[in-house]
Amino acid sequence: TTLFDDYADNGIIEEDVENQPNLIKLTMYADPSLDLDTIKSDIENRLTDANISVTSIDTTILDESTWLNSWQQYIEPTEILPNLIIKPAWQEYDNVDHKTIIEIDSNISFGTGAHETTRTCTELLKSYSESMDLDTVTCLDIGTGTGILLLIAAQLGIKHLVGIDIEEYAANQARINCENNHVSAEIICGNLDSDFNGTAQIILANLTVDPLKILLPQIGKKLDNQGILIISGIIDDRYDEIMPYIEADWHIIEERIAGPWHTFALEKR
């Protein structure tokens, strides 16, 4: 599926084909403003270039509610850290072991805990926050989306939480999820450079390569001199493209890889 990551904004589902073990079915939910014939041609060319045979490609336009129901059924509760469960609001979970549950409601396909980048960001957040005074730390989540990383940070004991997202629908979703999970967080709809004042000791940016290239210089102004920056959303195919932007101003403390995705813990040079 990494061949089609630039079509993945609205989700990709991979399924087996019944009674045909040598085939898989990919369903990609692309931007509806794109031309269907162009998408079909582009996909055919990518598969041909990758020496992957294809039996058929079909395209159709879905309304928003059909799309939403299509991907939601595949998102299951997941144990993001030992004894910490991320549960989609529309799924049941039998909590017989009395684990801590974070419930996420979402009208967008990402930020439900199932993605590799969410897990690796969480692991690094836990690792680096353990040596900090969590009563005084500010944790800033850039592109907060559903607010999932802020909710995890709250469970780790971080008291001062700030999320920022340029999209109003995402900021509203983060506010709803924080309220539903009884987490106090400041959620800002706006731009990092102009709308977040002050500095943070932990900054999270689980984005993609294009916004990271723009934001990395700005993030340096918002991170405490002794702070930690955790970035993710870096796919194998664009790894070499982002590295000069990282190496210009940042020292790599740690890198974690999950599937085709790379996550970094960074500090300022």
Rank of each mutant, 00 (worst) to 15 (best):
T199L: 02
A174T: 07
G157W: 04
Q226Y: 13
I187C: 05
T122L: 00
A174P: 06
E168T: 09
I102M: 01
G113D: 06
N191F: 14
N225G: 12
D105C: 00
I187Y: 11
P217W: 15
T146E: 01
I102S: 01
Y169M: 13
M132N: 08
D165K: 08
N206G: 05
I176R: 15
D97Q: 13
I219E: 07
N197G: 07
I228L: 02
A153Y: 09
D94H: 13
I228N: 05
T117P: 12
D210C: 00
S106G: 14
V162N: 02
E123N: 08
V183R: 12
I101M: 09
C189M: 09
G147Y: 10
D135C: 01
G145A: 04
S109V: 15
S106M: 01
G147N: 06
A154I: 02
I202P: 10
G233A: 00
E179L: 10
I202G: 11
L134R: 14
L156E: 09
E130W: 04
S194N: 12
G111N: 10
H115V: 06
P217D: 11
A174G: 07
C139V: 11
T144I: 02
N181P: 03
L134M: 08
L229V: 05
V96R: 13
T146A: 00
N95I: 03
S127I: 08
L216Y: 13
L151R: 07
T100V: 11
I176M: 11
F196I: 06
I231F: 00
L140C: 03
L149H: 11
E186G: 02
L215K: 05
I230F: 00
G157N: 02
D193S: 08
L204R: 07
F110Y: 15
T117G: 11
L149N: 09
I142V: 15
D195R: 01
K99G: 08
I152K: 04
A154E: 06
V96F: 15
H98Y: 15
L192I: 08
I108P: 02
L150W: 13
D133Q: 12
S194D: 12
I187F: 09
